[in-house]
Amino acid sequence: MKTFSSSVERINQESATIHGQFGGQRKTSGYHRNPEWQVKVAEAERFMDEIRVGRRRHTDFAEAMSTSDFPKLFADSLDRQLYGAYMATVPTWMNYARAATVNDFREVKRFATSGVRGLLTKVGEGAPHERRAQTETEYKYSVDKYEAGFGLTWETMINDDLGAFFRMPQDLADSVRDSEEEFVTRLYCDTSGPHATNYTALKGNLLTGNPALTRDSLQAAITVLMKRKDERGNPIVVNGVRLVVGTGLSLVAQEIINTTEYRVVDPNGNVRIIKGNGVSANLGVDTNYWIDSVATTANANTSWWVFAAPNGVRPALEFGRLRGFEAPALYERIPDMRRMGGGDEGVSFETETAEKKVKHVYGGTFVDEKMSVASNGTGV
């Protein structure tokens, strides 16, 4: 078998000939006189007979048959798999923006009042008391409708042996989360970092010198928030603080928060070991992936924001959804094709496509500049 198997392998070569594989012997008469020739012929007869009766193993043919012999059968890979879609960003906006519900598409108004609260004044006998006037600040915005969808032809659905299109409705739902996060990001961030309209030195919410994010600068920002006062000088209570950064500062922010000990050297060279970082109390960190897309300059890697928790009297931001449509709504076109004799098909009669879409209605605005502090981190 070994002799004949090697001969079968050589036959597969284009240059091989049957005559050459059997020793190249020529007949000297009506019979082959060479013993080697006779052995090979007998072995070939036995091999073919065993094939006929089913006694040859499949492995005996492995050397003779390869994928190159079957260009059509192996044209497409038999080992295929579908990678899942990228994971949607984890929304962070609800940690520092207030969620609200609006009734319709008309402009909604929010009013902040002040002017009456304040310390009492001493009044002498028969003297008039202080008459205080209430002041109002107006904030307004409206919601808009946002949609996206897809259509699949009947042929595409038939060919979808990997189920690639079954997760597309989930992709639409993930698009809603991304859209909300991106929308809120644009309320406090622009191409250069902190939104140029909402963060200014005049409003007192842009840190002097735009310091980089460090423990000291973060502590200074938190101190600014904790010292906020209203128009009559009353302290504004801040119950919690959120630090918001892009991906470029995510590790830096986590290191600051997770530090459990730091050392301070005084002017005399004395070293003090302080337990705790001094800033982690009532402080949370949010990494907003959309900052990297909204801020298109290098400031995306250096900008950072601090927000008062939105559960206070006034939030820094408000994000509103339409009443009755607080959650995204998924739709599909009703199919209008049926087989003669019965049986619906989930596609359009005209184009033989199946269509689905998602609808979401939302809007928002920047509310109170006192409830946030920011820096572009450039040191300028």
Rank of each mutant, 00 (worst) to 15 (best):
S7L: 15
E350K: 15
L162D: 02
E180L: 12
V123D: 05
S5H: 03
E147K: 13
T200F: 10
E155A: 15
M337F: 14
M65I: 12
T351G: 08
D216I: 07
Y86V: 07
R52W: 01
D266N: 15
Y331P: 05
I256R: 04
G320A: 15
N270T: 14
F150A: 13
E350M: 13
G24I: 00
K370A: 01
D60Q: 10
V238A: 00
A99R: 06
T28N: 12
R215M: 13
Y331V: 07
R33H: 00
E136C: 06
A196Y: 12
G30S: 04
S6I: 09
N301C: 01
G363Q: 00
A88D: 13
L119Y: 07
T296A: 13
K357F: 14
H19F: 14
V102M: 04
M340K: 06
E181I: 02
K275M: 09
M1K: 14
T197G: 09
Y141Q: 08
S77I: 07
G20A: 14
F165D: 08
R263Y: 10
T247Y: 04
A44I: 07
A16K: 06
I334T: 07
W305D: 00
T365D: 09
A201Q: 08
E43P: 01
T156D: 12
D286V: 12
A196P: 05
R132G: 10
V245D: 03
T59H: 12
K40A: 12
F366V: 04
S5R: 02
T28L: 08
P71V: 07
L225W: 10
A85P: 03
S348E: 08
A64K: 03
G312T: 05
P310W: 01
Q25R: 06
A42T: 06
D292N: 15
W290Y: 08
R263F: 09
R321G: 06
S179W: 05
N301L: 06
V90H: 11
T296M: 07
E43W: 02
Y31E: 06
A62F: 15
R110D: 15
S5D: 03
N270H: 07
F4E: 01
K370Q: 00
E345N: 05
V358I: 15
D160K: 08
K40V: 06
V238G: 01
Y262Q: 02
R131E: 03
T260N: 11
N239H: 13
N34F: 04
F105G: 12
D216M: 08
L283I: 05
H129V: 14
A253E: 09
V347N: 02
N301T: 10
N270G: 10
I18L: 14
S348Q: 02
A62Q: 15
A88V: 14
W305H: 11
S372K: 01
S372G: 07
E180Q: 11
A62H: 11
M371P: 03
S77T: 14
P35Y: 09
T135R: 11
E43T: 13
G363A: 00
A44E: 06
